Structure formats: structure tokens, C-alpha cells
Simulated assay, not measured.
Amino acid sequence: MNENEKDLQRIKELRLMDDDFFSEALDGKIEAVEYILNTVLERDDIKVKSTKAQVEYKSATKRSIILDIQAEDTDGKLMDIEIQRSDRGTGVKRARFHSSMIDRSLLCKGDEFEDLVDTYVIFITENDKFGMGIPLYHVERRITEMEYALFADGAHIIYVNGEYRNMEHPVGCLMYDFPCKDAKDILNPLLAEEVRYLKETEGGRSQMCKLLEEMRNEAAAEGNYEKAVSTALKMLARGRDSMEEIAELTGLSLEEVQDLADK
């Protein structure tokens, strides 16, 4: 079986509960994202102005994040939807970090703090994160000395229980669709349409094969980079080579070698 045949087999197994497939399926798909947001936020009036997949929040010196889907509604509120299959990726401090990284991008120099828009970090987890068997877990800051009144800072974190299957509840219907591998099994027509395109049309399968190829190349590049860093560290520890020689031999930039030396 050649690589292309392997990719086509992999595509058959993908679900909306797989983050890369989720991002590819919903990139720019306003109606489908509106449906998910209205379901999770238990509303029917959210209008999405724009939505984009794989939005990166960079930090020059600290850790960066990449959002699976980011949406902005017509009121300017920002909503980040993350798919988390592994329990390791559902940590509460990860949610805090995501929320803070979004916040730091919202104000320019001279802007008022009150201009901060509301933000929503939504984790759709394959397992029931908190084990209560309920569809949604809402995380809000509260003031202890005021009978736990809401702090109302506009930062909202929501965990969606991916195991929830009560079909009389909108979240149960939504979560029924996420593990489906075949579009014909998906209840919501908007989600079914996007899954069908990527899995059952020539254009969609070609798009997914390209994505899988890019992921393989990124993984290879990451592996090569880790090897280069390891070699540079050994050369620095040996103390015989100049920064320029280490950069030339490892393929790292002079700045990267200097950063390793500083650390």
C-alpha cells in the first residue's frame, strides 16, 4: 500500500473529535460554527462575523498557542473552540493560559481596559473531564466575600462533556455527531455536509491528503530541529567551538545558538 492509499484509509477513520480534521472541516464555515456556539452557549442568537482555523498566538520569548477554531461574533466577542481527546490536554491551567493569551492580543497601546471584549474558551473533551455526567461545565471567577457573586470580568471558560449522549438535550445531539466517521450517521446537516465534502469528494480528499503530507513534513522538521538542538548543546558543553561554527554545523541560526548558550 503506497502513501496515498494509506492517507485515504486514514481519512476514513477521522472524526470531528480529531482536532486537525475538526479545524479543516470548520475553517471559514460560519453557519456550522454558529450552530456549535449556539448549542454550547445555550443561545439561539449568536451571529458569527468570521471564523478561522489554526489561529496562532505567538510569544517571542514564551510559549505560544494555536487555536483549533476561533470565531468572532457581530458584537466583537471572541470564541475559541478547542478539541481535546487526551485527558492530558484538558488541564485547568491550560484553559487559564489560553484565556490569557487571547486577552493579551486584544488591546493596543493607549486602549482602555474596559474596551476588552468578552472571550470564551471552549474545550470539547472526548472524556467527561469532571466526572459529573452533565453536558457542560461553566468556569467563572467569583468573589468569595460577596456570597460568591460573579466577578464579571468577561472571561468565560466552558468544558463540553464529549461523553454526553442524552438525545433530548442539544449538547447530547452535538456530541453524538462528533465521534461519527461517516457523514450519513451525523444528525446535523451542516456538520454532515462538511464531513461529507472532506471524505467523499475528490476535492475534499485531495485537501485532506495535502494536510496529512504537511503534518508529516512538520513532524520530520521538528525531529530534525530537536536533533540539531541536542547537537548544539553537546558542542556548547564541550566548549571548543565558536557560536558561528555551531550554527554552521547544526543549521541553527546564530540567535538560536546564543539562546541555548544563555540558558
Score class of each variant (00 low, 15 high):
residue 120 Y to R: 04
residue 110 G to A: 11
residue 106 L to R: 09
residue 112 E to G: 06
residue 90 T to W: 03
residue 104 R to T: 15
residue 148 Y to D: 07
residue 136 L to I: 06
residue 148 Y to E: 03
residue 84 Q to T: 02
residue 107 L to G: 14
residue 139 V to N: 01
residue 151 F to Y: 14
residue 126 E to H: 07
residue 128 D to L: 10
residue 138 H to V: 09
residue 143 I to R: 08
residue 103 D to M: 05
residue 73 D to L: 12
residue 106 L to H: 03
residue 104 R to N: 15
residue 112 E to T: 05
residue 112 E to N: 07
residue 117 V to S: 08
residue 154 G to S: 09
residue 139 V to K: 04
residue 105 S to R: 11
residue 84 Q to F: 01
residue 81 I to R: 01
residue 125 T to Y: 01
residue 90 T to A: 15
residue 98 H to L: 06
residue 77 K to V: 11
residue 134 I to V: 07
residue 75 D to E: 14
residue 153 D to R: 01
residue 107 L to K: 14
residue 125 T to I: 04
residue 108 C to G: 14
residue 116 L to I: 15
residue 109 K to A: 13
residue 155 A to L: 09
residue 97 F to A: 10
residue 122 I to Y: 02
residue 75 D to S: 12
residue 81 I to C: 03
residue 149 A to R: 12
residue 92 V to T: 11
residue 87 D to H: 04
residue 139 V to L: 14
residue 152 A to S: 12
residue 75 D to N: 07
residue 142 R to A: 09
residue 109 K to L: 15
residue 88 R to F: 06
residue 106 L to E: 03
residue 87 D to S: 09
residue 114 E to G: 14
residue 124 I to C: 06
residue 85 R to Q: 05
residue 144 T to F: 03
residue 103 D to A: 08
residue 82 E to Q: 13
residue 149 A to N: 04
residue 92 V to W: 03
residue 120 Y to V: 00
residue 118 D to T: 08
residue 139 V to E: 05
residue 84 Q to W: 01
residue 102 I to H: 00
residue 98 H to V: 01
residue 82 E to N: 13
residue 124 I to S: 01
residue 84 Q to A: 14
residue 86 S to P: 02
residue 120 Y to G: 00
residue 113 F to V: 13
residue 97 F to C: 04
residue 115 D to T: 10
residue 109 K to N: 11
residue 77 K to G: 02
residue 106 L to P: 00
residue 142 R to K: 05
residue 98 H to N: 13
residue 155 A to R: 13
residue 147 E to C: 07
residue 84 Q to D: 04
residue 100 S to I: 10
residue 127 N to H: 11
residue 136 L to W: 01
residue 77 K to M: 15
residue 89 G to P: 00
residue 132 M to Y: 10
residue 124 I to H: 01
residue 121 V to D: 00
residue 138 H to P: 03
residue 143 I to Q: 05
residue 85 R to P: 00
residue 153 D to P: 03
residue 93 K to L: 10
residue 88 R to M: 06
residue 85 R to N: 11
residue 116 L to F: 15
residue 152 A to E: 11
residue 119 T to V: 12
residue 74 T to M: 15
residue 100 S to G: 12
residue 155 A to I: 12
residue 89 G to Y: 08
residue 145 E to Q: 08
residue 115 D to R: 07
residue 101 M to V: 12
residue 144 T to N: 03
residue 142 R to E: 06
residue 102 I to F: 00
residue 129 K to S: 09
residue 115 D to K: 06
residue 86 S to H: 05
residue 138 H to A: 05
residue 104 R to L: 12
residue 141 R to Q: 12
residue 148 Y to G: 03
residue 86 S to Q: 02
residue 134 I to S: 05
residue 93 K to Y: 11
residue 99 S to N: 10
residue 73 D to P: 02
residue 130 F to C: 10
residue 154 G to Y: 14
residue 103 D to P: 03
residue 114 E to A: 15
residue 130 F to A: 06
residue 84 Q to C: 02
residue 135 P to N: 03
residue 104 R to H: 15
residue 125 T to F: 02
